[in-house]
Design a protein around this nucleic acid. Structure first.
Length: 230
DNA sequence: AAGCCCCCCAACCGCTATACC
DNA sequence: GGGTATAGCGGTTGGGGGGCT
């Protein structure tokens, strides 16, 4: 048996909020506060809404000092650098941007920033892959055996995987363990496939290639045109 | 002008964390 | 300590609007 629903779904209105509903909710909360109980709040006001829906509406749109749209370059950078270091913890990221909500930042990331960064990095990685095809492995990320491709048979890694963890591939000083989430793959002309991913634990981006693992690379700085090599 | 497609974003859903009894 | 209610969070969806053909 699952948990009882938080509200009577049949008698609850869904979809966009009307100006009247907004006004009711805003006026009530400004006068009485939430009382620490969102579930009972719609009944008190006379709204046919789920308490969760009221909470979301207030937090994301009605509470004072909310900003919408018009993200600045500085905000872009903060979002990108935090995403790289802590991942998709939108509420934590929102806490660093006064007036921004987690929902707003999440939408902004998914619709704009992710594409922007992925596009830039694809270009960069393509350049490095081309270099490696001509025998220039200077940009590759070596493992402890100084092998650019970290040949470690049996590492469970393939293009369908969205997560990777590889302690066999590390930085030259042995400190870096790859751990992150893949976001796209690139295929070299010799057929070798490289997965690109954010190395969340270390705040860097890496390339990994099955069944080996290797990396190339760069600190994830959105304003950088070029890869800074490790 | 009409139809189609794509993108954006408000809102919902389901899960986990926390508080309380 | 266990059970339940609620808050909070992140992933996902789908309606609407704008652009393109």
């Amino acid at each position: 048996m699952g948990r009882a629903p938080c509200c009577d779904k049949a008698n609850v209105k869904k979809g966009p909020w009307s100006p009247e509903e907004d006004a009711k909710l805003k006026a009530y909360i400004q006068q009485h506060g939430t009382g620490g109980n969102w579930i009972s709040l719609p009944q008190k006001i006379g709204l046919k809404r789920c308490g969760k829906s009221c909470r979301l509406r207030w937090l994301n749109y009605l509470r004072p000092n909310i900003k919408h749209g018009g993200f600045s370059e500085e905000e872009d950078e903060i979002i990108c650098s935090l995403y790289v270091s802590i991942g998709s913890r939108w509420s934590v990221i929102a806490a660093h941007l006064p007036g921004r909500t987690d929902n707003d930042i999440k939408n902004y990331w998914n619709t704009r920033l992710k594409k922007k960064l992925t596009g830039n990095n694809k270009q960069n990685f393509n350049q490095d892959l081309k270099r490696s095809e001509s025998g220039d492995n200077s940009t590759l990320f070596y493992n402890n055996n100084q092998n650019p491709y970290c040949p470690q048979p049996g590492i469970p890694m393939d293009a369908s995987q969205s997560q990777f963890v590889n302690s066999d591939c590390s930085n030259l000083d042995g400190t870096n363990t790859l751990q992150g989430q893949t976001s796209f793959s690139l295929e070299r002309s010799d057929g070798m496939e490289f997965l690109y991913g954010d190395d969340i634990a270390n705040g860097t981006s890496s390339l990994v290639c099955p069944p080996f693992a290797s990396g190339m690379l760069q600190h994830y700085a959105p304003d950088q045109d070029h890869i800074s090599l490790l």
